[in-house]
Simulated assay, not measured.
Amino acid sequence: MIVRIMGEGQVKVDDSRFPELNELDDELLAEVEGGDEEGFRRTLHALLEAVRKLGTPLPDDSLEPSELILPAPDATVDEVREMLSDDGLIPG
């Protein structure tokens, strides 16, 4: 799956890695809903770092459509709340 981290670029992440990412996504969703700013910040950074670590960066000139868009590392709770679905940031 092609994942875009806003403000950074795209990363190709193998579908087999998404159970790991979904654990962090579930944690992030709970922290947003619970108003835990410190936990939110920590988990957002952990989620983005996991995507970077588990994925392969695409070249900057790549024109692949993003199948998933994640917020920038400095996104606010309100900005992330607007991006959330019932499943969090990552479907499934």
Rank of each mutant, 00 (worst) to 15 (best):
67 E>K: 13
83 M>T: 00
73 P>T: 07
36 D>Q: 11
4 R>H: 09
44 L>S: 04
77 V>I: 14
18 F>L: 08
11 V>T: 10
41 R>T: 12
64 E>T: 05
12 K>T: 06
8 E>W: 06
30 A>D: 14
87 D>C: 11
49 E>L: 14
50 A>T: 12
90 I>G: 06
64 E>I: 01
36 D>K: 14
70 L>S: 00
5 I>G: 04
21 L>C: 04
65 P>W: 08
76 T>N: 02
42 R>A: 13
70 L>W: 01
48 L>R: 09
36 D>P: 06
71 P>R: 13
48 L>F: 01
20 E>G: 10
1 M>F: 00
91 P>H: 00
90 I>L: 04
92 G>A: 09
89 L>F: 06
73 P>S: 06
40 F>Q: 13
11 V>P: 01
62 S>V: 00
89 L>V: 05
48 L>H: 03
35 G>L: 03
90 I>A: 08
29 L>M: 11
35 G>C: 01
64 E>F: 05
85 S>P: 02
65 P>K: 11
69 I>E: 15
8 E>R: 13
77 V>S: 04
13 V>W: 04
25 D>Q: 10
50 A>H: 06
19 P>H: 06
45 H>Y: 10
77 V>C: 03
5 I>F: 05
89 L>S: 07
78 D>C: 00
55 G>K: 05
72 A>V: 03
39 G>L: 03
69 I>G: 03
15 D>R: 15
61 D>A: 07
3 V>I: 10
17 R>H: 13
39 G>W: 02
6 M>K: 15
68 L>N: 06
60 D>Q: 11
49 E>K: 15
66 S>F: 00
63 L>K: 14
64 E>M: 12
11 V>G: 01
86 D>T: 09
6 M>N: 12
88 G>H: 07
33 E>Q: 14
41 R>A: 11
34 G>N: 08
3 V>T: 06
49 E>C: 04
89 L>C: 03
42 R>V: 12
5 I>E: 11
76 T>K: 10
34 G>F: 04
22 N>I: 14
26 D>L: 14
35 G>H: 01
39 G>Q: 09
18 F>W: 11
85 S>M: 00
43 T>L: 07
87 D>K: 14
31 E>S: 14
84 L>T: 03
24 L>R: 13
45 H>P: 00
71 P>C: 06
37 E>N: 10
89 L>T: 09
31 E>F: 12
37 E>V: 13
82 E>C: 04
21 L>W: 05
19 P>W: 05
6 M>R: 15
7 G>Y: 02
64 E>Q: 12
52 R>H: 04
28 L>P: 05
42 R>E: 14
13 V>Q: 10
9 G>M: 05
56 T>D: 12
84 L>M: 14
80 V>H: 10
21 L>G: 10
23 E>I: 12
6 M>G: 11
90 I>R: 09
64 E>V: 08
46 A>F: 02
69 I>T: 15
51 V>C: 02
14 D>Q: 07
27 E>K: 15
35 G>N: 10
